[in-house]
Nucleic acid binder design. Structure first.
Lengths: 230, 230
DNA sequence: CACTCGATTGGATTGCCGCTCCAACAAGCT
DNA sequence: AGCTTGTTGGAGCGGCAATCCAATCGAGTG
């Protein structure tokens, strides 16, 4: 009735940037990053391109906003420990897990650093490092290095997870294939990889990531040890 | 003459996978990664899509092949030092510089790890770590962590370089903008970032990267110090 | 020298995507 | 009621990777 269906019914509830970002996040989480097309968004929100582009500059802007949201959530959720080393490990692990669960964040963070989302991360890491007696002048470099390590490795891991298919069986099979490949390498040219093939299957990415964090922290404590030892 | 121009002249010299990969690398280097389209390739090689797809599975395959070539070249070029620590620094820096010069490698490596190109890297890093007395059982984890750090940070840096435009002036301006943003942050909520704003302008990514490598190595030496000290 | 047949090539075409552009509409203001 | 300003829906554009097929070449055969 009424408008003769010259147009589809105009939406009654207001569209908003938050609503769009939320819908985008849902599509990303449930159907994967390839499924997030503007077309898919118009369908899910039953609206048109114009409406979307009125609230969002472009697809990249949309992804950035979604990433900021998720990261901010993660950072408010991490529990601080009295021990700075433990807090750092907790922050690192939370980020790792978040990126593992949503690989698209990893890709986004490496494409656009210096996003608001990263502020929390830098600040938090800097705070804990300071508590570990890292001197003022070295804070910038060591925090930068550590954050880069966290985001870099988590991103790599997420990329891996995307290559090996999503389910656990495929992942194991895929790892086994790589292991077989490594085992076939010429032991004369690649002695270490040849041996490492055995460990590849049973290795835990999360554990390896954490081991890296620990190495980093050990290095920081060694290099920046103050005269006072606690 | 002859064939009435029913078709453009068929090429006389043979097309090959190597030729295609080489042409792709040239386009990537001279015109940037956005310029590499299959259409651009057909023009440069004066051929058609069919010929390309006969030699190459898809665009991703092409990029992977190009990356393998470049990385292999880099790894054969690094000069080994008698001191393992120095060799590791050299390897890390070479990779950093290579990825800085060709940002597309960084994106590619984080999208597809476990490529043949990475074999050389893992093997070389593993070898030097072993020379640093890292025990056998810890070799896998520490090498993995270090390689991940190198590729992760180099990739991040390349992504940065892509955001800040290509020339030096734009980069400085862009960094200054971020610094101004940080300086405006609430010193109560972000005390460290607020202070770090001053250092942002004059910081050297390459130096910071190397500092991270050193922290890592210091950590490795601390954690895996054998009873014998050299 | 024909004649064949698989390997290779060129390019029209398909299907999808991000994005632009504009007409239609709603709601507040005078 | 008109006018203005902010929002909405959707047709259409240009560009992309990838497919498909007809045209062509060349090595092998007798």
């Amino acid at each position: 009735m009424a408008t003769k269906t010259r147009r589809a019914a105009r939406r009654t509830d207001a569209l908003s940037r938050e609503l769009i970002v939320e819908a985008a996040t849902q599509i990303l989480d449930t159907e994967g990053e390839d499924a997030l097309t503007l077309r898919a968004l118009t369908i899910r929100l039953s609206t048109g391109y114009g409406a979307l582009y009125h609230h969002v500059a472009n697809k990249s802007d949309l992804l950035a906003a979604a990433t900021d949201d998720v990261i901010a959530q993660v950072m408010t959720d991490v529990a601080a420990d009295v021990e700075p080393r433990e807090t750092l490990r907790a922050v690192a692990l939370s980020l790792f897990d978040a990126i593992d669960a949503r690989p698209w964040i990893g890709a986004q963070l490496s494409r656009e650093p210096w996003r608001p989302a990263l502020l929390e991360i830098y600040e938090s890491v800097g705070e804990q490092l300071q508590a570990l007696n890292v001197p003022e002048h070295a804070l910038f470099d060591s925090a930068g290095a550590l954050v880069n390590y966290i985001l870099g490795v988590a991103g790599q891991n997420a990329a891996n997870a995307r290559v090996h298919a999503s389910n656990e069986a495929d992942r194991t099979a895929s790892l086994a294939a790589v292991a077989a490949q490594w085992a076939k390498l010429d032991p004369a040219k690649y002695p270490r990889l040849h041996k490492a093939a055995a460990q590849l299957g049973e290795h835990d990415d999360r554990q390896q990531f954490l081991a890296g964090v620990d190495l980093f922290l050990a290095g920081i404590e060694t290099v920046y040890r103050q005269s006072e030892d606690d």
